[in-house]
């Protein structure tokens, strides 16, 4: 899956099949056709519920909104295979609880929103952001990753400049 952005840049997800791109991106998890439990990242094969012997896991979009379970902020560049920008800019991560699915999903937070802007219990919404940019076979390519951005009144700050 790829989306062409303005300026001849092609956008592709940094990992295939975990989330959609576009205006209202969402995570793709799996739901068990037999017991109804959810799992993220998406996978095939056995249902994770030990009480269920189904192997029918169906890809399904997950809720775009949730609340912060916890969060942090990296002040040092993580080691490879993370592709840290130089110079390194600190960034935050948040683990967000999705009520309907009953799971907590860890993700980055958009650049510029820091730990001081977050709080346990705060509403968050799924967006995407550029993880790294690289020319692949002559094509200028942005590799995208899902991010958790503050929802509600502060949401404008999170998506500003990345439309």
């Amino acid at each position: 899956m790829s989306v062409s952005a303005a300026g001849g840049v092609t956008r592709v997800p940094a990992v295939e099949g975990w989330f959609t791109l576009g205006d209202e991106p969402h995570l793709i998890g799996c739901r068990c056709a037999a017991c109804g439990t959810y799992v993220f990242p998406p996978r095939s094969g056995a249902c994770p519920n030990p009480n269920c012997d189904s192997e029918d896991l169906v890809p399904t979009p997950l809720s775009r909104v949730g609340t912060v379970w916890s969060y942090t902020e990296n002040q040092y560049a993580p080691p490879p295979p993370y592709r840290a920008a130089e110079p390194f800019e600190p960034y935050a991560l948040a683990a967000v609880q999705l009520d309907e699915e009953g799971i907590i999903v860890l993700g980055q937070v958009p650049k510029g929103i820091m730990a001081a802007d977050l709080k346990v219990g705060m509403p968050m919404q799924l967006e995407t952001d550029v993880l790294y940019r690289e020319v692949v076979d002559g094509v200028d390519t942005e590799f995208m990753v899902y991010v958790w951005a503050p929802a509600g009144p502060t949401a404008a700050k999170s998506i500003g400049g990345r439309s």
Partner: peptide
């Protein structure tokens, strides 16, 4: 590491 830069201290910090 690749997608999130989620080092071990990231989990400890949460």
């Amino acid at each position: 590491f690749h997608l999130l830069g989620a080092t071990n201290p990231v989990y400890f910090a949460m």
